[in-house]
Nucleic acid binder design. Sequence first.
DNA 1: CACCATTGGATAGTGTCACTATCCATGCTT
DNA 2: AAGCATGGATAGTGACACTATCCAATGGTG
Lengths: 216, 216
Amino acid sequence: MRLSELSRRSGVATATVKFYLREGLLPPGRRITATQAEYGEEHLRRLRLVRALIQVGGVSVAAAREVLAALDDDSLDHNERLGTAVWSLPHGRPAGPDEAADPATARRRADRLLELLGWGYGPATETTPPAYGMLVTAIAALERLGYPCTVEDLEPYARALGRLAEHDLDLVERYGGTPDEQVEAAVALTVLYEPVLLALRRLAEAEESRRRFGSH
Amino acid sequence: MRLSELSRRSGVATATVKFYLREGLLPPGRRITATQAEYGEEHLRRLRLVRALIQVGGVSVAAAREVLAALDDDSLDHNERLGTAVWSLPHGRPAGPDEAADPATARRRADRLLELLGWGYGPATETTPPAYGMLVTAIAALERLGYPCTVEDLEPYARALGRLAEHDLDLVERYGGTPDEQVEAAVALTVLYEPVLLALRRLAEAEESRRRFGSH
DNA sequence: CACCATTGGATAGTGTCACTATCCATGCTT
DNA sequence: AAGCATGGATAGTGACACTATCCAATGGTG
């Protein structure tokens, strides 16, 4: 199909598709003539994934490019590709220089939590996932505002998410398809389930609040 | 204290503090002279909350203003204030016009899920929390990409978050303090725990992936 | 074969948003 | 009285995700 059809079928403006091509988020089409190119179904799927990452996941164009590069890196095996791709996802908002100062307490608390859970492998190493940094930053923010976030407060969250992670990976495996599609599914499900999680949390809080305080 | 001290103690640039004052995120200080104003501890706390909302929570200035306005609205009682404040939090990214089309399937699925859980009150009404819209949008995105998100897939997430919501509200009640502080705590904890949740999920997935596929 | 709309690559522009730099009249400090 | 700090107003900055315009080469049509 032509670029314009790709645009029509995906609901993305042609100018935007061109932009993604330019930015390397979408591989170039097969050149037919000097001025025309042919795109396939895989371009359509890729385009939809890009939109999901950027619009739903709030991933920046640059971060999306890295994620997709990992998906396409043939020098990696299945597991490495999966790890690298999820690794490249944004690690929360970049911490400003002012708040980076002394997250020592937060770091210690995160370490104690992970030790308690039996996750991870002691103190941070180079193989520590970026999510570790996300956690430390988030804990530091709570601390600086004086809100409770002791290990005991955090543990139930961690346990619950541990159980959900099994479910997440079941979904990915069940999704089956080719290895390529499975890696893509892992990325997509990681990102696309985040808003689901946050929405369900808000709904759950509203429901619990209704139960406790009645009214509404 | 003076504006400059407020800036120093909070680690926020004076120009930015002025900006927040201008934008109404921070109430004006008590005017001492024609050119100077005095700020108190409550300004410092509010400033930190603003930073948390904007930097950690990714809340826009406009949305933060609405949230804070609800916190300060004396015409509301405790519960109303809490509801209105959390209500004003951003409901995920605003859905573009292209994807707003026909979320009927997603809506039906969300309704069935909520019915199964015994949450909510049947089909959407004007008292349905904005989080309902977040959920529908997120489900629609998953569907359009062809990823699994049946009611059965979503239920474990919802159940887990339902249990966590009890814990959330326990934290808020335990936080005690004045009613004002409690409402503030509800907002802060709702927003500040989101990155904690997402980080723990990523870590849990990494851990589970390590268990299943070994290596690393 | 002549004509013109379409295609797609390149370039530069737009709108938004969260700040941030500058100016300046005032007034506190010594 | 000198000189610097304060804080209000105004305009500017940089990042980012597009988006509008131009244009040469092409493909379909009569």
